[in-house]
Design a binder for these strands. Structure first.
Lengths: 194, 194
DNA sequence: GCGTTATTAGTACCTAGTCTTAATAACAGT
DNA sequence: ACTGTTATTAAGACTAGGTACTAATAACGC
């Protein structure tokens, strides 16, 4: 690690901390074979906070991510909703959604956007997916903004049919037909498991 | 917050730190109207580490979660794999997978287990889901261990059909038919977007 | 050789603790 | 009322991993 210019070192520092944010200045100083103070000047110049702040930031995003990716009712951002009629959501394909090799979005994320929208568009206490008939028409790619539209095609008191299409620009990425069922909260915990 | 016995305070402390792990001893002392030292004795007695350790622990689990939930090829744990023939994975339904109201697993998690297994069982560089025909037979519930079996029913050089069934104990939770396509890495970035 | 930039060193201070010892305070038992 | 036990508070010395600032060198360009 010796024999690096300031620029090289700072570039390497940025990259290293990107995926190893837990190392202290002392560790870094040893790795780059410079003094602790030099590392601190580098961090100052690059606007990189101290270890404990870096760790805290990660822990904080985890908290919000758990509530926004797993915890919310809709995967993606809900843009329009007219209950029992139609709904639109957008979903930005980010690095964590794609295969590393191909930068193609894993199918279940695209399904998740469509499925959660099909469930959200129906107005009832508890809505569950019964069947889904889906087609991945062309891959979703890293960086794309996927726009998902759900249209309710039939709606009786027990079940609804929802037609979903996901597009990137004017190209269709995904289409699906969902059948969802509605239940009262009372029914949910009764009957099926004895 | 005043007028609490030691036991009450310690119980409240455990609960409070459960969902607010970021508060310092000083904050806690103010909230419970006791001295900082008392809080420290409490933490010592309860085996609760200091703030910075708590934060670090959260940040660390986030790192591994990103790699195990989003980053791996299979959602759930792969327990058997015979390429182009069959595969089995298990998936434990945990609090983050269910609707808060009903404790029923969100459909897309069950789909994700099945979809990723259908893709993993096929032996090719790049495998993408083309169509899926799925049925959510009964809800998956918090705490259940879902066992997913994928069977390859046909397998030509371009596409494969995979039949997937997910069970909890001896009850069928989900079934699906997946058509997946195989591609060379060269084909992936050519043709479709121009 | 001189000026500029880069690096190193040292000091005082901060937060959020640790660990230890010691002094009170509160309560019960007899 | 006195004693013993438990609970609480306080004080002191030390730690990690820093910030902010000042000052002294070292290295490089020309």
């Amino acid at each position: 690690m010796a024999g690096m210019s300031k620029k090289e070192r700072q570039a390497a520092l940025l990259q290293l901390l990107e995926d190893k944010p837990f190392v202290t200045d002392e560790d870094l100083a040893r790795q780059f074979e410079v003094s602790v103070q030099t590392i601190r000047l580098d961090r100052l110049a690059l606007g990189i906070p101290e270890v404990r702040e870096r760790i805290k930031a990660i822990a904080e995003t985890k908290q919000t991510e758990l509530r926004s990716l797993e915890g919310t009712e809709v995967i993606g951002q809900l843009i329009e909703l007219s209950l029992n009629e139609m709904a639109i959501s957008i979903f930005d394909v980010e690095p964590e959604h794609v295969f590393a090799k191909t930068k193609i979005a894993r199918g279940h994320h695209i399904f998740a956007q469509a499925n959660s929208l099909a469930v959200a568009v129906i107005n009832a206490d508890v809505v569950l997916t019964r069947t889904a008939n889906v087609r991945f028409i062309r891959p979703g790619r890293l960086g794309e903004r996927l726009v998902c539209k759900a249209l309710v095609t039939s709606n009786d008191p027990e079940r609804s049919h929802v037609s979903v299409i996901t597009r990137s620009g004017d190209e269709t990425v995904f289409s699906g037909e969902f059948v969802v069922v509605k239940m009262g909260l009372d029914l949910v915990n009764g009957g099926l498991e004895s």
